[in-house]
Design a protein around this nucleic acid. Sequence first.
DNA 1: GACAGTCGGATCGTATACGATCCTTCGAAA
DNA 2: TTTCGAAGGATCGTATACGATCCGACTGTC
Lengths: 231, 231
Amino acid sequence: MSSLLSKHESVYRTIRERILNGGYEPGERLVLSTIARDLDVSPVPVREAIRRLEAEDLVTFERNVGARVNTLDDEAWEQLVEMLALLDGYAMRRAQCRITLAALGEAQRLNDALRAHAGGPADQHGEVMALHRLFHRTLYAAGDNRYLIETLDSAWDRIDASRVLASRWPAHRLASAVNEHDELLRMLRSGHVDPSELERCTRQHSLNAIIAIRGRGDTGRLDRVVPALNP
Amino acid sequence: MSSLLSKHESVYRTIRERILNGGYEPGERLVLSTIARDLDVSPVPVREAIRRLEAEDLVTFERNVGARVNTLDDEAWEQLVEMLALLDGYAMRRAQCRITLAALGEAQRLNDALRAHAGGPADQHGEVMALHRLFHRTLYAAGDNRYLIETLDSAWDRIDASRVLASRWPAHRLASAVNEHDELLRMLRSGHVDPSELERCTRQHSLNAIIAIRGRGDTGRLDRVVPALNP
DNA sequence: GACAGTCGGATCGTATACGATCCTTCGAAA
DNA sequence: TTTCGAAGGATCGTATACGATCCGACTGTC
């Protein structure tokens, strides 16, 4: 007789879930004994769960003090997104010669669903973020490199946990992003696009999120170099 | 009265060290109670250490069975190096406009030390690998993006742990790598190199390691496209 | 000889207990 | 009023204990 998940595993998933969708805020303290009582387990499996979250850079643990949900200042957030842009762009390059028609169709459906939200009520931010992440995930999963996918997922997790996009993504950026997605899908389908060019455009699409959050405006275009983050 | 490190922390470092430099082989079992006795602590901090190593993808833990040092098959190894090439190339691009003369000099010294090993006895493989990794680390640390650096370090760790380079790096590859390093340093110093070009060449340098291990030969050149891994 | 079933040792999983550390609070002296 | 220091509570850190699970070996049957 055994449950499917060990206690440590289910505790891990529960805490992680709460961090990612705002149940625990950035900076919030995670007290072992409190969580243990809350989830009806002893502190031991909770400690193990927190160690894993620490290794994933979702929480910070200070000896004899305890754990807190990580916060991201503006500079850290931009550096993280910059890495995500890099990985996403390359994953797209790999996807170009591997993606199936089914995956392309799925991505198109997700982007159409996103378009339906553009200009809509701002209180569906959670759904929009989930759709947007799923759109990208569908594409980079087609790139079929385990390490790229894991690192991308991990980066997205930390971005979600930071609540930066959830609280500061400008509403008008969504429409631009949807158009850029369409453009990327066109490039994928065409079959005649230089891989380097596809990678460059995909990277630029992600970097545009930084520019939008910085409030420098938003080109919504991939076909020219926007103010470069790195000359 | 307290020691500098908690037991869990020092256990973590000890195990990690052994995994990285071959004290524990890929595939080897890590038995909690044995390690605990060996390091003179109770099994509890050992479990925490193993959880962290699991989250770092250095070991795999199976419920009710135990932990093993991770193994990398050829395909996984190539995918990991491919990601490393991507990150390293971009870190170099960032470094181009940030690196100091001191860091450039340090990198040159490390590469000169590497050159001194080329053609030398093959039993100094450990030192060569350490120098090589340090050379790259000096450069991408200059890129000054915390996430790039952490992800690169983590990827190098897993590559070291796999023992693939330690056991299969062809001796002749070292001389080529040293020349490529020189070429990259020249590009960094010149100040007139297109950032995209620098990134491309740096990426290619890392990808050449895959080609060398595959045994397809080794161009030792960065100025033309070698048989592409991704068209 | 092949196979199923049972037993036992090895190992993991978690609860509990208790000492160690930190941080806040409160009070007394300057 | 400010500062120093002691006391107490909150919380962490680790050892120990013991039940649960897995796996290999042994035995008996066909």
